[in-house]
Design a binder for these strands. Structure first.
Ligand code: NAD
Ligand code: NAD
Lengths: 225, 225
DNA sequence: AGTATCTTGTTATTCTTTTAACAATGCAAA
DNA sequence: TTTGCATTGTTAAAAGAATAACAAGATACT
């Protein structure tokens, strides 16, 4: 697993590794120590080949008779997708969605820490939510630098989305998770992931309509993007 | 645009059509009547070829000199992705996320109506939120049937996710939008779309780490899908 | 020992999606 | 009129991802 080979891991495989790990931790908690590719596949509702291929790409070898050693696999996935010292995350826009996410994420993931939220609302600034302090926008540069925040989640109103993204990047954020419906672009060296809920919902609506009008297709789609 | 050709529109194109439409409505509101493929592309941060290819797939022809007629294109996209009489949506699990989504979606989309929420919390049952009534789980069958709800958004706790999905499908829901981190499967004739936030966040974290360790890749990824 | 069975690891193939290439078109200006 | 230019529509190629195919290893059973 050198740096070059990691770079060639498909994006989709990276996504599945995240999911495998969580699934593995769950079955591990039940006392299981080994698992077969088809068992992982069943949990994830994908094929066993897909699982084996993904594990091949990260260079993990299982036992031909017992399957994969859960603990070792979890550790290897961690070596690949985690930063050794963890990464810090900030939420930009502590509204309905931002608050839900803060609630959901804080104290949950071992290597990703939500350490700050930013908003313009005077009622929120200065307070803490789930142990996460909320700062005014004028503090972005200072806090991002001081805390070494590398990831920003954008949940401000659509009109403010691009400006907020720019501010975050100027302050030093290297990864953007954009939950506004506004398509963005980022400079070289910054990674952008976008998710648009309306699109998902309209997509479901479209395929429901299509399935209704002629029942040809059995469909499952997974996004995460 | 017959039924066969619609079926062959790539999933990704369907997603982009949803986004094109919203972008077009915005520029239309500013008084613009025509638009070039490269203008759409710029808004969406994709390539003009991609736009033209998508429009080709839905059989829309632009004017060689003026570009695409915005209003006509919006209408055509509507003919393709909307159901003529709209579709009704229910939220299952009116917690932090479910409430945020209800807030966000209610009264917003023209052809998709959130008409019900379901929860087990006695404090929520019987109340309305954003004009959306919350019912107990024992009412799912009755309400889904009565209101002809075709789409269910799953935002219950992870442990309840599969049971809730099954209940929704038994009641007659034909499309599931799963926001829990629990991978699901659905019977034939039901469409499933899943989005896992943790996966997205860990993916961003991974690529931030990689970009940091060697600045080769300029990356943009969009999910919704 | 030999055979059957199950699993992994990997290569080959197919499918999907994006990107490139380019002919055809229509207008404007020379 | 003719040339140049920017745009569309479409076919061709490339890239990315999933699926299939199958050799090889390990164990159990005969
Ligand atoms: N609520 C949802 O479920 C949901 C779902 C998908 C996408 N979104 C998107 O997420 C974004 C937020 O949605 P919401 O429902 O939470 O809205 P919201 O209005 O509840 O929250 C927006 C928050 O951003 C703050 N804010 C406003 N301007 C700001 C600025 N310039 N800088 C920093 N903070 C600022 C506001 O004070 C508020 O707290 C929107 O773009 C929306 O499209 C929301
Ligand atoms: N909060 C987020 O930002 C967020 C983000 C991504 C994913 N999720 C996922 O969404 C789900 C909900 O998250 P949340 O933060 O809103 O949790 P939450 O606890 O705030 O909400 C869960 C809601 O579901 C209700 N509920 C519990 N059991 C139920 C049942 N059997 N049937 C119907 N309703 C039931 C609860 O009463 C509560 O209102 C979780 O699976 C979580 O993993 C949440």
């Amino acid at each position: 697993m050198n740096k070059e080979s990691i770079k060639q891991i498909p994006h989709k495989t990276i996504e599945r590794l995240s999911q495998y790990r969580r699934a593995l931790l769950l079955v591990s908690a039940k006392g299981k120590t080994h698992i077969f590719s088809h068992e992982i596949a069943e949990i994830q509702h994908i094929t066993a080949v897909q699982v084996r291929r993904d594990l091949m790409l990260i260079g993990y070898s299982g036992d031909l008779r017992k399957g994969y050693k859960i603990q070792a696999l979890v550790e290897l996935i961690g070596q690949i997708i985690d930063s050794p010292s963890g990464q810090k995350v900030a939420v930009f826009g502590l509204g309905n969605l931002g608050m839900a996410l803060t609630h959901y994420l804080s104290g949950r993931r071992e290597n990703l820490y939500i350490v700050a939220a930013f908003d313009v609302d005077e009622h929120k600034i200065g307070q803490s939510f789930e142990g996460v302090p909320c700062y005014g926008m004028e503090k972005v540069k200072e806090i991002v630098a001081r805390e070494n925040i590398t990831i920003g989640i954008i949940t401000v109103p659509a009109e403010e989305a691009k400006a907020t993204k720019n501010l975050a990047i100027e302050a030093g954020v290297k990864g953007i998770l954009n939950y506004t419906p506004v398509p963005m672009e980022v400079p070289e060296g910054v990674f952008l992931e976008e998710y648009d809920m309306i699109t998902s919902l309209e997509k479901v609506a479209f395929y429901v309509k299509e399935l209704g009008s002629s029942d040809l297709e059995n469909t499952k789609r997974t996004a995460s993007k």
